[in-house]
Design a protein around this nucleic acid. Sequence first.
DNA 1: AATAACTATGTAAGCGGTTTCAATAAACCT
DNA 2: AGGTTTATTGAAACCGCTTACATAGTTATT
Lengths: 340, 340
Amino acid sequence: MTTNMTIYDISEKAGVSIATVSRVLNGSSNVSDKTKKKVLDVINQYEYTPNAFARGLGLNTMKTIGVMCADSSDLYLAKAIYFIEQKLRANGYDSILCCTGYELETEEKCLNLLISKKVDGIILVGSHFIYESESDNRYIMDAALQVPVMLLNASFDAPNVYSIVSDDYNSMYEATKQMIASGIQDILYFYNSTSYSGKRKLAGYRAAMEEAGLLRSGNLMQLYTGSHEDIQGMSEHLMKVQGKGILFRGVIASDDNLALGAIKYARTAGLRIPQELAIIGYNNSLLAACCNPELTSIDNKLETLCQHLITTLMGLLNGSEMPKKTVFSGEIIHRGTTLS
Amino acid sequence: MTTNMTIYDISEKAGVSIATVSRVLNGSSNVSDKTKKKVLDVINQYEYTPNAFARGLGLNTMKTIGVMCADSSDLYLAKAIYFIEQKLRANGYDSILCCTGYELETEEKCLNLLISKKVDGIILVGSHFIYESESDNRYIMDAALQVPVMLLNASFDAPNVYSIVSDDYNSMYEATKQMIASGIQDILYFYNSTSYSGKRKLAGYRAAMEEAGLLRSGNLMQLYTGSHEDIQGMSEHLMKVQGKGILFRGVIASDDNLALGAIKYARTAGLRIPQELAIIGYNNSLLAACCNPELTSIDNKLETLCQHLITTLMGLLNGSEMPKKTVFSGEIIHRGTTLS
DNA sequence: AATAACTATGTAAGCGGTTTCAATAAACCT
DNA sequence: AGGTTTATTGAAACCGCTTACATAGTTATT
């Protein structure tokens, strides 16, 4: 356990100065093996742990990274947080978590809070408020003036802001193309966010549809504004869409949760999956393997993304030059909700 | 944004001493309104934020709570973390997250790390290493010597350790009793952890079975040791159990994930749910409403638990006397996997 | 009007480390 | 052996803020 000794106590017991104790604490090379051992023995004997605040004051770092996400209870984000936390701690850092609940104001407040807590870096896990235009991201840029800011699945170009993204555009483009190739023409795009990655995904879908000459009107894109947990609501939403006479034989969802809503809708409407309604989800979350039929989904290699994010961040903190943006491609995992 | 001014800069610009600045910073009453305004103006003008380390050094607190959990990507734990983080921040605290990955050694290490980071309290979210016997929890008791330790869904009696638990025993007892009452006698208990709450749940099941004279041997309890995400593996596990000639017409699972495994097993084995196999899960997670048929599950009022946990912790930090243990009862949410 | 009792502010001593700089000891040359 | 260079160590300044104590300025009391 942690005792309440100070560096003075240790220096006294070890018969050296506090400077020397500090040196062995920080692994300075300029300490003789003999004294180093002597000091370490005392430290171990009394289970001394240096005071983090004092240390922070002197070093101006507490080896802590701020992690911000909209909702840590979202399956995908929760997973990201888990990977990030694990990898950070493996690197001797730990993480302060802030959940912003999809509110811009909270996001700004948290950002300032993290900065004032002197984190060494900030990771935005799927922030919902990254805009394409730089000037709209001022609050992030302000934070980046102080510490490196890492963006997971989002990207914009600003000093000291680094992005690790999955190629959502291309993944969606390919998924849509494949569904078209399987003979389906009326493909509804079902999404719930206009975030950075949301826009990219939508663009991928549109490109494929346009290319095939199938994008006739905005009818085939449906924004769902309810909670990401409200499967029933999603299903009802699709029922309404159907009620309006909009025809669709395929659903491509921006998220597995939404895809589940589509599955539920199919059940309610009595449609056979995938023969009468094909569905593709996104994120390849636990849900995809859980539902019935199992969901075809796009896997965007979350762990790889997180690993690179941490590697990049650690590099930056060590003063290395690091790539501003890294892109990984996704992969379509075929399961029971698609034909081909 | 946060500037790099010190209290000296502010005091100079405001024409007062640093003590006065510090007083307005900390809301001390002994400052005249005139000077207070003067100082605040300067602070706002320069967007000054006091250095957290220096402040921590002086106050010996950084308004931070350590949150430990085995796996933040687990649906249930993720949700708990979300609630906790939200409520903490609403109270002016924030949280350092540590995921221990179900490893005792990591759990101990994190506990020490949190203490050394001078957190004001520690919350164990469904720790897997709470033992019934006090002496086995020494490492937690050591931490409790320094700061209050809050246990969610676990409990043991030690100084400065507080518990908020759901009455798992009773919930399971009732669930089992109801299934028996619905005419099912061969009920398999499918579980994956021998944690504190795991034991309680199992005991509830046993009690109900014993009471009904149905507990003939240990055959009807099946410990699954695989990953909580490996639905396929769970299903196969149950296939093997069936293969051994162990008969079961009902499954009560210690967790919704396991229940999903049971659903998958039923599908594979060609059993109709709930007529040929009834299933009850635990936690009433998102999954329960997602799967097909929808899962009957026990809701243990997670948000209520978290709310009370935070309230209790805040009370403690304000020096109030607080209850050592609070118990809430759960509720069975009936859906499509049970008869009655 | 003189004394007591506050109120508002400043001075300076910590809080527990890190680090610069100077001093001492040990090692290396010629 | 004497002069250098280098490896160790310690003294003390400093990081930025809190707070006990002292002081000066006000208001209340008799």
